[in-house]
Design a protein around this nucleic acid. Sequence first.
DNA 1: TAGATTGTTAATCGATTAACAATC
DNA 2: TAGATTGTTAATCGATTAACAATC
Lengths: 222, 222
Amino acid sequence: MISIPTIKRFPSYLRLLRQYKEDGESWISATRLAGDLGLTAIQVRKDMAGTGVEGKPKVGFRIDELIKAITENLGWNNTTDAIIIGSGHLGVALSRYDGFSTYGLQIVAAFDQDQNKVGLPIGRTFVRPMSELKEYIKTFDIHIAVITVPGEAAQEVADLLVDAGIRAIWNFAPKDLRLPEDIVLQRTDLATSFAVLSAKCRRRMEGDDGSHPDDGDEEHLD
Amino acid sequence: MISIPTIKRFPSYLRLLRQYKEDGESWISATRLAGDLGLTAIQVRKDMAGTGVEGKPKVGFRIDELIKAITENLGWNNTTDAIIIGSGHLGVALSRYDGFSTYGLQIVAAFDQDQNKVGLPIGRTFVRPMSELKEYIKTFDIHIAVITVPGEAAQEVADLLVDAGIRAIWNFAPKDLRLPEDIVLQRTDLATSFAVLSAKCRRRMEGDDGSHPDDGDEEHLD
DNA sequence: TAGATTGTTAATCGATTAACAATC
DNA sequence: TAGATTGTTAATCGATTAACAATC
């Protein structure tokens, strides 16, 4: 089974591979991939081994094959429908974000507690009232929900989602959710990301000694 | 020196500690912190050791002391000015985000290449043209820049920032930047975050066996 | 006192890195 | 052939977890 650190590097590989392809190339070596991403060639080869794609000594890997294998490995070859709860600035930004289509993610509905927002257009749809949440999830068999409500409301919303039968939650609210073990949870916490940035800045100031490993994560986010 | 994984957990501790304080409590045990965050008590004690705060057997740690120590450790006791490049949906959302004040981060200016956006109000300020970027950074001695431009433009913008003397870049664009070693780089990559979510979903489906370690990063943001 | 909790030292676990034979 | 590159096995490194004495 592929490790989480490797999974985290997959999107970066994918972006670069697509670029190579666009440039008309069809083979790529781990050496060059590593150079372009600031990784070691050994690490890239290990990661590629996880995809099941075999390389050719002296030439490297077939770009098309790698793109296909990584995409499938991430499950990004199929489109997944998701809903978003919270239509504040961030909710609107994510709802309208084109980039998600690259990952096979499609925001098909937005919900908000604020009656004044209900009905407003957002992305390709409009804001729905929370009262319709449960029925929507069940009717359209939605598996993934994105939370962009204020931190204070996040746990309550998460509980509603779990009750409605959601399987995975992508939480952007600054709050650590408590969820049943069988629910998949992924955070994108700006505070955590900025904490790492702050810490790195601090070290740079205080004269850290030489070594500058590229985290990439939060990094890469963590 | 405090490890990056520990740094990543600091914001979660901080949020929880502030909540305890609001609830009128003044002491907290590692056991309870661990329970509320889904960590082990041993790990919490190790993390707390990093702050330099000493606990009392049987009672735990003074909440005020921990809040102060963690805040100072992250450098969040002082306000830091930052600028943002790219006034699309995400840029606007981040510029207006109130939560940053909690981390001592203040977005003091926004820039955009699009002449139609220049002059538009955003957050507490208005959009400036890219032509003013370098001078602004030098005049106000800005150390941190947030990038929210499209992936294709990110490297170019980053190069401009480095040339203007920026020290740290928080990159939200879906692009892996190549920067001089002395520049602090932190990514918040939605693709990476969603990749982890996708992988976890996949495993849940394919009948993974029992163990459900809470990543939290990315989970993690990260 | 008894018992929950802290703090430290040692063991474990997993990812990265190194070494090196195999290959085209 | 020579040499760059792959793929695998072993070594290293660092974080998490376990064990346990110290403490109030």
